[in-house]
């Protein structure tokens, strides 16, 4: 016989149950804190795939997630209200999780991408890639690295980013590398929420007050020149265009009349961001976290 116990002091007591299986995702194992996120996964690169090419591709996908995650995390305690503060932190953590998996996948596919560390350093490959590379070695697009502006800027940037990345991840679920396709399958659910979050706020701000609309349009105009590089890198111009047109129509907003930002490589904002992000890890290359 099972007694029904209700803990009135803890509203969550009944919610969690005792089944830990709900933490697992896809056919990747659950990640424990500080553990290799790909522990237990067969990371052999399938025949017919170029390991160096796969590693480079995972690095670009991972760097975008890592840098965007860091920019979002800068919003902690600065969002317009508590609920959105938590929402942005959730999105940042989703992307950090994607970055961990992708950087680990890159390192496993081609160990030569991992920077050399002092003999005996316990720093795992994903951390070596995140914290011990220079800005010039990061593969991320410029959209994710520019400094954050106001909330309107954030919503515009997140909408462009999540729309393009979701389209790319939907395609990547069929990738020949089973590890990358599993990472993509997990990411699709996360990115669908990120895109929904950004699109809802995009329409809300556009249809809100004169001030909210003005600031959203200012933010959109600022990030729009970086959109061309984003969709070209992800190769999702068509899918992205359809979705964006829908959101823009719902918001009553025209595509900004600004051309793409010229050139390639990084803006100077990336090295400043990395300096802050990497300083502690670099000060303790033999540290255990």
């Amino acid at each position: 016989m099972t007694a029904t116990v209700t803990d009135h002091d803890n509203a969550y007591a009944d919610l969690l149950g005792s089944d830990d299986a709900h933490w697992a995702f896809g056919h990747l194992p659950e990640i424990q804190q500080g553990e290799d996120p790909l522990a237990g996964v067969d990371t052999t690169v399938p025949a017919g795939l170029d390991p160096a090419g796969l590693a480079a591709y995972c690095l670009f996908l991972g760097d975008d997630a890592l840098v965007m995650s860091h920019r979002l995390s800068e919003w902690c305690s600065n969002a317009p209200d508590l609920e959105d503060d938590i929402a942005l932190a959730n999105i940042a953590l989703d992307l950090l999780g994607q970055a961990r998996l992708l950087l680990s996948r890159a390192a496993a596919a081609d160990p030569s991408v991992v920077p050399a560390l002092p003999e005996g350093s316990p720093v795992p490959a994903e951390d070596a890639l995140a914290f011990f590379r220079e800005a010039r070695d990061f593969r991320n697009v410029r959209l994710v690295e520019v400094p954050h502006g106001d909330f309107g800027h954030l919503v515009a940037r997140l909408l462009l980013f999540a729309t393009a990345r979701l389209a790319a991840f939907e395609r990547l679920t069929a990738h020949a590398d089973p590890v990358l396709s599993a990472i993509a399958a997990k990411g699709v659910k996360e990115l669908a929420y990120h895109r929904d979050y950004a699109a809802r706020w995009f329409v809300t701000l556009a249809q809100g007050t004169d001030e909210s609309r003005r600031r959203l349009l200012a933010g959109l105009t600022e990030v729009w020149p970086l959109q061309a590089e984003l969709v070209a890198t992800y190769d999702v111009a068509a899918e992205t265009g359809v979705v964006l047109d829908e959101v823009l129509a719902a918001a009553g907003v025209d595509r900004p009349a600004v051309g793409p930002m010229s050139g390639h490589g990084h803006t100077e904002a990336l090295s400043r961001m990395l300096a802050e992000m990497q300083v502690v890890a670099r000060a303790h290359p033999l540290g255990t976290w």
């Binding site: 509203a11 919610l15 609920e83």
Partner: peptide, 25 residues
């Protein structure tokens, strides 16, 4: 409502502009 729960349990409160935002928050 939890995975194993049969009914919805009050867990707290929040602020939102409308019902849809309240659900997402």
């Amino acid at each position: 409502r939890g995975k194993r729960g049969l009914n919805h349990v009050h867990v707290g409160s929040l602020h939102a502009a409308d019902d849809a935002m309240a659900l997402h928050n």
